[in-house]
């Protein structure tokens, strides 16, 4: 029996953003990463292009984490206090597409490191790896405004992705990204309208749309994942329907969020009946990532190498015609 044609026609395409710059382009990266480009509901390539494969950015912290459970610490314990070695391990051994340097240590409550030290850390990572970088502040507005401009200048021409601009604090970081040729993360906590508003604000002062990645804040599996899921799905539908201010690649912070949940980090003796902690945490991270991917995600920040491997394998399968 003939079945009805269910192909949907879309008028919009997610903007393509290029992260990293090679020598020829004025940077030092061995390769660049392109994200975005989807013109169909995720993976429905019978009605458009699924766009570039979602990429994995592995997090590297500038100061050793204090509260990581053993299952998460294990793969990094030899490199945990050296961001450059840590980043190198993520790329060489675990296949990270990008490195996200998370500047926890500049936070007033977590060490209050100065800009100079942060710049040094970022430089050491740039030298250690050939993949493009994401550089993420500490979410303390004042401190970020102090430190991120210095990092922006120090990495001029590398076309990094800097985070983040919010509705209330965007001018400073936008000016720096513009001057130094970086990409920008715009952030709006689970709210489509505010997200669009931030994107309009930053483009109003001259920042190009094709250098923006959106971030809604992420909920882990079991801890509000569905909010992020539906916000991202609505944004992707708006993008495909031609709203250019929402037709931008989306980033999710999966590693940090999923490893905060009880299910990921509790010890075996604390949670009888839940199964091995060594598998529970990495799988919790994996499932948060693969479920969110269905809502339309382009960059996934992750922690555990086992989860990274599983998510990469899953993404490859989503881009393979099995028939």
């Amino acid at each position: 029996m003939q079945i009805p044609n269910v192909t949907e026609k879309w008028s919009g395409t997610v903007t393509e953003v290029t992260i990293g710059a090679t020598k020829e382009e004025g940077g030092t990266r061995q390769k660049v990463v392109k994200v975005g480009g989807a013109s169909c509901i995720p993976f429905m390539d019978f009605e458009g292009s699924p766009g570039h494969k979602p990429v994995i950015a592995m997090d590297v912290l500038d100061v050793p984490p204090e509260d990581w459970p053993p299952a998460l610490m294990e793969p990094f314990k030899d490199v945990i206090s050296d961001p450059a070695l840590w980043a190198k391990k993520c790329v060489d051994k675990y296949g990270a597409d990008l490195i996200c340097i998370k500047l926890d240590g500049i936070h007033p409550d977590k060490g209050n490191r100065g800009a100079e030290e942060a710049v040094k850390t970022v430089r050491s990572v740039l030298q250690a790896v050939g993949v493009p970088l994401i550089i993420w502040g500490c979410d303390d507005t004042q401190k970020d405004n102090e430190v991120l401009p210095k990092i922006s200048q120090a990495t001029k021409g590398e076309r990094c992705l800097l985070a983040s601009a919010t509705q209330d604090n965007y001018k400073n970081i936008v000016a720096n990204c513009m001057a130094d040729g970086h990409n920008l993360v715009t952030q709006a906590p689970v709210d489509v309208n505010i997200q669009k508003q931030v994107n309009i604000l930053v483009t109003d002062i001259g920042f190009p749309l094709d250098r923006i990645v959106m971030f809604q804040t992420t909920g882990a599996l079991g801890y509000g994942m569905e909010y992020a899921y539906s916000i991202q799905e609505r944004e992707r539908l708006a993008a495909l329907s031609g709203d250019k201010f929402l037709a931008l690649p989306v980033l999710c912070n999966v590693g940090y969020e999923s490893w905060r949940s009880k299910e990921a980090k509790s010890k075996d003796e604390e949670s009888p009946g839940w199964g091995l902690a060594a598998e529970r945490g990495p799988l919790w991270e994996t499932i948060t990532a693969v479920t969110l991917i269905q809502s339309g995600v382009d960059i996934i920040r992750m922690y555990h190498p086992k989860a990274v491997a599983a998510v990469k394998k899953h993404i490859d399968a989503l881009y393979t015609d099995g028939r």
């Binding site: 079991g222 529970r280 479920t291």
Partner: peptide, 19 residues
């Protein structure tokens, strides 16, 4: 394995929540 079933059931719990 319980560590496999728990996340799957949690996905179900999340996705079927009334938005």
């Amino acid at each position: 394995e319980p560590w496999q079933v728990l996340p799957l059931l949690t996905v179900r719990q999340n996705i079927y929540t009334d938005p």
